[in-house]
């Protein structure tokens, strides 16, 4: 059967030590038996490694940061659409999702399909709302306090034992063993990500993760659990292995069913010594390790694109247990012309 030709725009080509999911997403699509995709890479920075990887993208466009205003970002996407006639757009950063979700209909009117969580789904899983989320959907979550000011730091001692996790509202987390360390972390996180800063109870155990895809009707289309085997100093997985864990799968399916989650997601969980799972975070997009799921037998990127195009997708329930990924760094030699083109013309 001939593959369906599509044009697919993807962000998150920053395959750095804090990688985005764009490159692994594209790898999944390139292995698709359904799609023959023309890949349009959308980048924020002119040194995102995905720009320079041979055979990855057919064209590259630089786009403005959403912090500069949603309109500017969407207008740029519309300009790219005029040139490339995009069928599907897959944003991969938390910080840009809001702009694309708000403009979902505007993009669809132009013929650009997305498959994103709803604004409600996106907002209710935010870190500062996790306790309410846990209560609403019957999931164990660590206790937390939203720190709106320096003065609230003393509340931590009244509620939790040290150490505690201090988290930025979008990214970054530090373990703090005392009040002094909380103050340092608070200042760093407040300056970078704004308020509130979240103080979260420290749950001792093993961190495990699930990459999953919900169809928006309560069905889990794909889910693969993984344990990080090698973690960088930024807390990113540099190696991981798929697990056989029915409890984790059940928790994932139940959460997707109750929330009717639409789109890709990553659940971050801690399994304590008693075998209980605590939900510590929900990322509202696919993670950078999504290619492990492809390698284990679930091509989640392909399934997400199918859902975006309104095609029928059957839930995938099987995956290979004990499949591993190991990341590596690699120096590409790049001609100045490519760097100059993206820097000056904002496209290649």
């Amino acid at each position: 059967m001939a593959k369906q030709k599509i044009t697919l725009a993807v962000t998150g080509l920053n395959n750095t030590d804090n990688p985005g999911p764009g490159v692994p997403f594209i790898r999944g699509i390139k292995e698709s038996e359904v799609f023959d995709a023309r890949i349009i890479g959308l980048v924020y920075e002119n040194l995102e490694p995905g720009i320079y990887m041979e055979g990855l993208c057919d064209r590259i466009f630089q786009i403005p940061y959403p912090s500069g205003g949603s309109d500017e970002l969407i207008e740029r996407v519309e300009y790219i659409h005029q040139q490339e006639k995009l069928d599907v757009l897959v944003p991969n950063f938390d910080a840009e999702l809001f702009s694309f979700m708000k403009n979902e209909q505007r993009l669809l009117n132009k013929g650009i399909h997305t498959f994103l969580p709803t604004l409600k789904q996106f907002q209710e899983r935010e870190k500062d709302k996790l306790p309410e989320y846990g209560k609403k959907y019957g999931v164990k979550v660590p206790g937390s306090i939203n720190l709106g000011s320096f003065n609230q730091i003393k509340e931590i001692e009244e509620n939790f034992d040290y150490p505690v996790m201090i988290k930025g509202q979008f990214y970054d987390a530090y373990v703090a063993a005392n009040e002094e360390q909380v103050k340092q972390a608070f200042q760093k996180l407040a300056a970078k990500w704004g308020l509130p800063v979240i103080a979260q109870e420290f749950v001792k155990g093993t961190e495990v993760n699930v990459v999953a895809l919900g169809d928006g009707k309560g069905n889990t289309i794909a889910a693969v659990p993984m344990r990080k085997q090698y973690i960088t100093d930024k807390g990113k997985a540099w190696g991981g292995i798929t697990l056989a864990d029915d409890k984790m799968m059940e928790l994932t399916r139940s959460l997707i069913q109750k929330t009717k989650w639409k789109g890709g997601m990553e659940l971050e969980l801690i399994k304590n010594n008693a075998g209980e799972y605590y939900l510590i975070e929900i990322n509202p997009r696919l993670p950078a390790w999504v290619y492990l799921a492809v390698g284990a037998g679930q091509n989640i990127p392909e399934a997400l694109v199918k859902l975006a195009l309104g095609l029928d997708v059957k839930p995938m329930t099987e995956y290979k247990i004990g499949k591993m990924f190991v990341r590596y760094s690699y120096d590409m030699i790049v001609d100045l012309e490519k760097f100059a083109a993206i820097s000056i013309n904002r496209e290649i």
Binding site: R227, L243, A244
Partner: peptide, 13 residues
């Protein structure tokens, strides 16, 4: 349990 002595717990990794 593999023949070469490698033991893997697929639940914990």
């Amino acid at each position: 349990i593999s023949d070469n002595g490698f033991v893997f717990n697929s639940n914990s990794g």
